[in-house]
Write a protein that binds this DNA or RNA. Structure first.
Lengths: 196, 196
DNA sequence: CCATAGTTTCAAAAAGATTTGAAACTTCCG
DNA sequence: CGGAAGTTTCAAATCTTTTTGAAACTATGG
């Protein structure tokens, strides 16, 4: 065998299971706002017993080298894939983050959070503007409209804050243990259906 | 005044606040997988003291009539906008659903849910396939790989089920009262940070 | 029934996102 | 150094989604 020890696997095609899983995850991730290929690449790495090179991924997923490179660097930026050095190999190898919960909470924290904070700011800003209008107008129609909008935007703000609370809870729970959250949620559900 | 009583407002431009809010919501909604215009249209209706016609929306948001019609019918399908009959008017008028929580839980229930169920099915299917492989192979390398993948997919499945539990909880809580959930979440957060 | 106001549809255009492939760059080794 | 192996970049091509606008359709009042 002239082949390097490291290159143990060398299969160039996915098993049907891997294909199915990477497709489902690709779709999920896309739905969820990332590129489909990010999901596919991550899945393949996640299901691989050992790290893969960019070229392995290219072959297995039929992507161009450019796409692989971009996808991997994006995945790295999100911290869901790591570079791995394999001794004696010249290429870079990549492995998936396998701590699913940690991974997700990181993404939540960086992405959803900044969106929601922007929204909260905008709503608060809008409320302030409306209050100024209420004070400075003499026209009762304008005032009435301002009142209604104030009320409605307040609702939006409450909702946004609830969302933020939810994210905070998920993220900080992730650092400890997901179990209590799960138990509560399942509890809440059955309690609700009993009451109805 | 030759103008109809109904047409009380007749302003054709948005106030800066409305503009800001509809833009923020447009972005949020887009990020969240809908069309930006759905968010913008909904926001304008939500902040309007009385129902608006398709044409009002067209002018105020600078959209083509086709776009307004499509957006409104899409919003209706999601149940976040209602048609309102105004007596003596020929046009249709539209109003936003103002029960935010109900609205969101409906969307969650229809959209996220079906995605997650598809994923759960796929994972279960994949596990079954892998089990068959484990039983029928004699090759120890194949078996080892199957074992690893079984383990990993099991993790994915657990996560997906957790997600589903979360959705179920949100949806059923929405039918009753969001408060307990909120309180728990805020509680969970501070507990977590104390423990750390 | 006709004429009119309003709404919906849908093919084509525009905008936007993703992917490609080849060139530029980097690193490592003889 | 010189060059082979590998990686990154980026403008152009492709593919998707969204928007437009005009024509078809519907409902209403005269």
């Amino acid at each position: 065998m002239a082949r390097s020890v490291k290159n143990a696997g060398d299969k160039r095609a996915l098993m049907p299971t891997e294909l199915a899983v990477s497709d489902v995850i690709g779709r999920l991730i896309e739905f969820w706002g990332f590129k489909r290929n990010m999901g596919r690449v991550w899945s393949v790495l996640y299901l691989s017993p050992d790290p893969l090179s960019a070229d392995d991924l290219r072959q297995v997923l039929q992507l161009s080298s450019g796409a692989v490179s971009m996808t991997l660097s994006e995945l790295s930026r999100w911290g869901v894939v790591r570079k791995v050095w394999i001794q004696g190999e010249r290429k870079d190898f990549y492995a998936a983050e396998v701590q699913l919960w940690r991974m997700i909470s990181r993404v939540f924290n960086e992405r959803e959070r900044s969106e929601i904070i922007a929204a909260i700011d905008a709503f608060e800003e809008a409320l302030a503007t409306i209050e100024r209008t209420k004070k400075s107008t003499t026209d009762p129609a304008v005032r009435a409209r301002a009142e209604l909008q104030h009320e409605r935007i307040t609702q939006l703000l409450k909702l946004a804050k609830l969302g933020k609370g939810l994210l905070d809870a998920l993220v900080s729970t992730a650092k400890i243990d997901a179990e209590p959250l799960v138990r509560f949620l399942l509890g809440a559900r059955s309690e609700a259906s009993h009451r109805s």
